[in-house]
């Protein structure tokens, strides 16, 4: 029974006391390159003011999660928060991990010290979580300042954004362990842009024909958007549990694959 359990628990979670040094390394790098992180905060804000405010002027009100009418801007803002959590995590976990693994040999260097593969997986994933939380928190401050957070439950959107970052970060990192060259990264946007545009981000699901509505449920970003939207409007029902389960499942699966793959790739 115990051995079975040990197999089910993702490898990285078992032994990763040194993950903090992997994290520390990223802090050291970005202490100088903080501008890169900081400037990433603006992208969702630009979208908020453009699509949410500018284009939203034509639309007025739409049907919100609870069924009542809400302003289009307030409707779009949580979706942009979810999308930027996804984009940030995917970006960090694919591009940077690949670079560190294949070119800079950062992980080879780490592994010649007491640090092990689980430390690396946990360290990198938690780094992308913290980064995501930073983005989410700053976006929330702007949203709240503009009065688009309708409920105190909206504060929960920050941890929710971290969960989204975890889900996408882990899966992104898992994918990057399969990538052979930079060319393969073109597939990343081929996946993320359609997710960004079609996951009921910019309009309620009801504008789709029923078949497409069903299809959208396969989009992990859809679950992210719905989760954050429900929280910012303070509308709760059982579907939230489903959204959260999907994201946790993604994250766990990704983490497990990452642990296995890094073992194969780095410890030959």
């Amino acid at each position: 029974m115990t051995t079975l359990l040990m197999r089910v628990i993702p490898l990285p979670l078992r032994s990763a006391q040194r993950a903090k040094y992997v994290f520390e390394r990223n802090v050291m790098v970005y202490r100088r390159g903080w501008m890169v992180i900081f400037s990433g905060i603006f992208e969702p804000l630009f979208y908020l003011f453009s699509i949410g405010v500018g284009l939203g002027g034509y639309i007025g009100d739409v049907t919100g999660p609870g069924g009542e009418l809400v302003s289009y801007t307030a409707f779009v803002a949580p979706a942009l928060l979810a999308s930027s959590a996804m984009n940030g995590a995917v970006f960090e976990s694919t591009m940077n991990i690949f670079f560190k693994m294949k070119y800079q040999k950062t992980y080879d260097a780490m592994l010649s010290t007491p640090i092990g593969v689980p430390d690396i997986a946990v360290g990198e994933i938690s780094w992308s979580l913290v980064r995501g939380a930073l983005y989410a928190a700053s976006f929330m401050i702007v949203m709240a300042g503009l009065g688009y957070v309708e409920s105190w439950w909206g504060l929960l959107a920050v941890p929710a954004a971290v969960l989204i970052g975890f889900a996408f970060g882990a899966v992104g990192m898992a994918c990057s362990t399969f990538m052979r060259s930079w060319q393969d990264f073109d597939y990343v946007t081929v996946v993320t842009l359609p997710l960004f545009l079609f996951s009921a981000t910019f309009y309620p699901l009801s504008v789709y024909p029923p078949v497409v509505q069903q299809l959208t449920r396969f989009s992990p970003l859809y679950h992210s958007v719905e989760l954050i939207r429900a929280l910012t409007f303070g509308v709760f029902d059982w579907s939230l549990v489903g959204h959260i389960a999907v994201l946790i499942g993604m994250g766990a699966l990704g983490t497990m694959v990452v642990g296995r793959r890094l073992h194969r790739l780095l410890l030959t």
Binding site: Y21, E24, R25, Q104, K105, D108, A109, S112, T113, P114
Partner: peptide, 29 residues
């Protein structure tokens, strides 16, 4: 590994860090 030192065939220095920072973070590992 905590008791040995390794100079790999291929340099695996952290190009995003300075000389001193490379030593600092490696010591932290």
């Amino acid at each position: 590994r905590s008791r040995i030192g390794v100079v790999p065939q291929e340099d695996s220095l952290d190009v995003e860090l300075t000389v001193a920072e490379n030593l600092m973070i490696y010591g932290r590992y």
